[in-house]
Amino acid sequence: MIRWQGQYSEQLLKTVDWCLSLDHLSRPQSVFALQKALTKKVPKPELRKKHWLDHVVGKFKRKIEVQ
């Protein structure tokens, strides 16, 4: 979950972990249970305004990746 944190909602990551549980009784027991978890309303994350320095660093990183 830590690897994808910030790229996907916490609810989705927890649902994926739930589906991948080694204990078969800990996984969703029906398609309906999984569907219910996937369709649960999630509050939209707050978009933080980028600081001007973030733009400069982003451009610098892209230039390095191209070279």
Rank of each mutant, 00 (worst) to 15 (best):
R3P: 06
W52T: 13
S30D: 12
Q35N: 03
W4D: 05
L47T: 10
V31Q: 06
K61G: 00
K50S: 12
V57Y: 15
P28Y: 00
T39M: 03
D17R: 04
H51N: 15
Q29Y: 08
L20W: 08
K44I: 03
Y8H: 11
E46G: 08
V42L: 05
E46H: 13
L25Q: 12
Q11W: 04
T15G: 02
C19A: 06
E65C: 09
I2S: 09
K40N: 03
I2T: 09
V31F: 13
G6N: 06
L12K: 05
L38F: 04
D23E: 07
L38R: 02
V66N: 09
Q35E: 07
Q5V: 07
S9E: 01
E65W: 14
L34H: 04
M1W: 00
S30Y: 13
Q7N: 10
Q7M: 10
R27N: 13
V16W: 01
A33H: 15
K14P: 01
K63H: 14
P43A: 00
I64Y: 11
Q11R: 03
L53K: 14
P45G: 02
P45H: 05
G58F: 15
K59R: 14
C19W: 07
V31N: 07
L34E: 00
G58L: 14
L20T: 03
I64V: 15
S9A: 06
R27I: 09
I64E: 09
D17K: 02
W18M: 04
V66R: 12
K36V: 07
Q67G: 14
L38N: 02
T39G: 06
Q7H: 10
H24K: 14
L25A: 12
K14V: 01
L47R: 12
W52Q: 13
V56F: 09
G58Y: 15
L34S: 05
T39V: 05
D54A: 10
H51F: 10
L38G: 00
H24F: 13
E65P: 01
V16S: 00
K14T: 03
